[in-house]
Amino acid sequence: MVITSNDITVKVDHVSKSFGDFTAVEDLSLAVRAGRIFGLLGPNGAGKTTSIRMIVNITAPDSGTIELFGQKINSQLQDKIGYLPEERGLYKSMKVGEQLRFFAQLKNVTGKDAQQRIDTWLERLKLSEWKQKKTRDLSKGMQQKIQFISAVLHDPDLVILDEPFSGLDPLNVELLKDVVLNLKRAGKTIIFSTHAMDIAEKICDDICLINRSRKVLEGSIREVKKSFGRNSIALRVEGTNGNLATSNLVSNIQHHSDEVEVLLTANANPQDFLKELIASGAVVTKFEMIEPSLHDIFIEKVSETQ
């Protein structure tokens, strides 16, 4: 796929950042395409947060350039970004409504307009009745939703969410996931940083995996999975269990409760394996090609570079 420059919302070009002797980000290049959900993945301390801080213009890179919406980053562009940092914080003694109004003002959204957006968002996240309550009276999950609202209140074109789902109950995770997908439908670009692979797998279009301050992997989820196309098959058969390992097409077998996961050798054709099975007289009740999960890719890649 050819990517033209006006498709790109965020362009990070050979960026490095270190704190004293510690290198947080090294020679990172990535492109976030407009209107897509971009997953910035990596283990703790990989350099995700530092990368995001540079994109949001909180810290400046030591070297390299960052462009947003085709311009070099500057403080005006900050108003087009909504940022939910991993470090959660709200003014505890302020009322929810006041707090949101304050954050809206910081993004140059004021007056009736702000008021209306606050009400809409509180409604959408089922927090309307808490508007006049002090923030400290809210549960942690509610506070997190409030902070999410403060990040999207000014209708930013780029939304950056650092671990937005951590600490939420499954119901709220679903709620917030829908909201994020709606933002995408509305044409917003979303950068989503997490180490929770199951959610990333469900909502991301593109991913970038970083580990130890370096980029390990980048691309659309489909491309990535394809390139990881391991010959793995979930299999349930009756009759020949013992003989599976003797096939020269099989490199590894893992036994699960009522099925086995068969990893074929690199160039083996699954169809040949199926033929072999049937020829051996086995009754095949399940034969399914397994795509590697993001989780598997993550673990493989991260332990590779450890």
Binding site: V56, Q78, Y83, P85, G89, F103, Q147
Partner: peptide, 9 residues
């Protein structure tokens, strides 16, 4: 820990 949000604005 509100500083990070503030500095993004």
């Amino acid at each position: 820990r509100i500083a990070e949000v503030l500095f993004s604005s």
